[in-house]
Simulated assay, not measured.
Amino acid sequence: MRAQVVYESMFGNTAAVAEAIAAGLRPHFEVTVAHVAEVVNHPAPQVDLLVVGGPTHAFGLSRTTTRQDAAGRTDDAVEIEIGIREWLDAALPVPSPRSAAAFGTKIARPPWLPGSAAKGIAKRLRHLGYHLAVAPADFHVEDMTGPLRSGELERATEWASQLATTALALPGAPR
């Protein structure tokens, strides 16, 4: 059983969550983790479970303009041209039902702040023909650039463990 975690990250928070998710999946799957820029030429991953995540920017998935803004807030290299939005919009529909899950990172406060990259990712995955094994999940950062809220990496690993169990129990799941 193979799983792939594809993520977009500006400040390292979403990347850390992606690695925590991979750790939760590894007891059940052979897992690869890749930044979206690494898979841009692979629009239809050949895996049993696809997990996709990104940061919430301006109440949803990042755009070129929001990535440019993020690049101005860090000394790290930030991929501006390609993000999860563009990758999924260019992706090929899956030929048969496959399992997927969506996650995102977003600012924890104020708690009523709307928007979620995870929900936008989930919508795009369903449109491509994926079956969402679990509801989209948001993991919280304290501020725009982080850090992750205490306990979020552990919560991500637990979420992934539950995701693996659910995905393996779905009808038609490879054995």
Rank of each mutant, 00 (worst) to 15 (best):
M1C: 07
A3G: 11
A3S: 10
Q4V: 05
V6T: 08
V6K: 04
E8Q: 14
N13G: 12
T14D: 03
A15M: 08
A20V: 01
A20Q: 07
A22C: 10
A23Q: 14
H28Y: 13
V31L: 06
V33H: 11
A34P: 10
V47F: 09
G53S: 03
G54D: 00
T56L: 06
G60H: 03
G60M: 03
S62V: 00
T64I: 12
R67C: 09
D69W: 10
A70C: 07
G72H: 11
E79P: 11
W87H: 11
D89H: 13
P93E: 02
P93S: 02
A101L: 05
G104H: 05
K106S: 05
P110A: 06
L113E: 09
G115P: 09
K119W: 07
G120W: 02
I121M: 04
A122H: 08
K123H: 12
G129E: 02
G129K: 04
H131R: 14
P136I: 01
A137P: 09
D138V: 08
F139T: 00
F139I: 02
D143L: 11
L148I: 03
R149N: 05
E152D: 08
R155L: 13
W159M: 06
Q162C: 11
A164P: 11
A169T: 04
P171E: 00
A173Q: 06
P174M: 04
R175W: 06
